[in-house]
Design a protein around this nucleic acid. Structure first.
Length: 348
RNA sequence: GCACAGGUGGGUGAGUGGUUAAAGCCGACAGACUGUAAAUCUGUUCCUCCUAGCGAGGUACGGAGGUUCGAAUCCUCCCCUGUGCA
């Protein structure tokens, strides 16, 4: 799932995202609440219509901002007070208000309001954070069940989601403690959601721990419901996690890295800003069928980057997303063939 | 020809007697980026040597000389650039 925090996947128009085969996008409640505002989006017919995106949307609850904006927030049992990173103004988020905002935005999948536990955190702190997330999960579900019919849905239904089909996913926390992960998973399942996310990872922990915790968490989640690993990963990692049983992932890495000149290819990472590509006539990735690789040279992409041209960001992002989406298509194909998740891709 | 202003490292531009191999910015080079406060951030950027260090030596602020314990900074002459006046 490409990340489109403020109702845009930075640098790439929606029609191209459709061409790339993107099925679902992420949006962020916190950012859209601040600007343009939930009411504005609601009045304009919801997020799908507002951003002209007919396919699925998942909105994150703002739970990650509890972590990433830690210097700008104050946390209590009731909720979190943020100081806006835009203008410093103060805003209160609770499970209830985060649900109200997400229902107002009108995404297809919305997320429970959680506390993304920081790394490192000791067991006591991790448990307290997990318990808070569990209480907030209960409150999120309660509010959602009572108010989901208020969805102001008048946007274009998608083939995958033909009717207003908002689903609230729970989020498992528990830091890097396997027993807490197990407990968090079981108690989140007890509350009951149509899908479950693994949160609190990719927050600075060593990557082998990420994998261990995913492994230790996934096994406690229902196999007949979506399992969503939040915030990962590299192309290699998403294959690994798919193999562990993860169904959905999102990550800013392909888009952010692209804007910073780091491109993922079948031959590994390419830092297109490097001088070695200045006269390189070849395609970025000779095995990639995307519109960037089939049209432009490495030398041109490097030139665009060095010249600080916006087209560099656009093309780089298109390629990285294309590479990620191809990777996941290959994984799905491989799974359908009964071979498990594989990184190998069909010949172009 | 005269009068002002000025010549600093790849560029621009601070610095006007001593922690100055010389700020900052740009450029160049390298690295980071994982539920987006990110078109961002970090490091390196005269040469040589080593025990690789807030190490040793060398060279450097248009040129040549001078003053001084010490000069990019002060003095003399010369060269060059810009502006104005002839």
């Amino acid at each position: 799932m490409p990340v489109g925090t403020v109702a845009t996947v930075k640098g790439v128009p929606q029609d191209i995202l459709e061409d790339l085969g993107v099925q679902i996008l992420l949006g962020n409640t916190y950012h859209l609440y601040l600007r343009p505002g939930v009411d504005t989006v609601r009045k304009l017919g919801g997020l799908h219509k507002f951003m002209a995106w007919p396919r699925a949307i998942l909105t994150d609850s703002g739970g990650f901002q509890v972590f990433s904006l830690s210097e700008l927030r104050r946390l209590t049992e009731e909720g979190v007070t943020f100081r806006s990173h835009l203008d410093g103004s103060s805003h209160f988020f609770s499970p209830e208000s985060a649900m109200a905002a997400q229902i107002g935005l009108g995404g297809d999948i919305i997320m429970a309001f959680d506390e993304c536990t920081e790394y490192p955190a000791d067991r006591e702190r991790t448990r307290a954070s997990m318990e808070l997330t569990l209480r907030w999960a209960g409150r999120s579900k309660k509010y959602f069940e009572e108010h989901k019919s208020e969805v102001p849905w008048n946007s274009v239904p998608s083939p995958q989601f033909p009717v207003p089909s908002q689903a609230l996913f729970g989020i498992v926390q528990g830091g890097t403690d396997q027993s807490l992960r197990k407990e968090s998973a079981e108690r989140t399942i007890e509350i009951g959601f149509p899908g479950y996310a693994i949160g609190g990872l990719s927050v600075g922990e060593p990557r082998h721990i990420t994998k261990e915790i995913v492994e230790a968490t996934v096994e406690h989640l229902p196999t007949d419901q979506p399992r969503y690993l939040m915030g990962v990963g590299t192309p290699e990692e998403i294959v690994t996690f798919a193999n562990l049983g993860v169904d959905m992932m999102d990550c800013v890495l392909p888009t952010r890295a692209a804007r910073h000149g780091l491109l993922f290819t079948s031959e590994g990472k390419v830092s297109i800003k490097q001088a070695r590509y200045a006269a390189d006539e070849g395609p970025l990735d000779p095995n990639c069928p995307c519109r960037v690789c089939s049209r432009y040279s490495r030398a041109y992409l490097r030139h665009l980057y060095a010249s600080n041209e916006v087209l560099a960001q656009v093309l780089n992002t298109i390629h990285n997303l294309s590479f990620y989406l191809d990777t996941m298509r290959a994984v799905r194909h491989s799974i359908l063939l009964g071979r498990g998740a594989r990184f190998s891709r069909p010949n172009p």
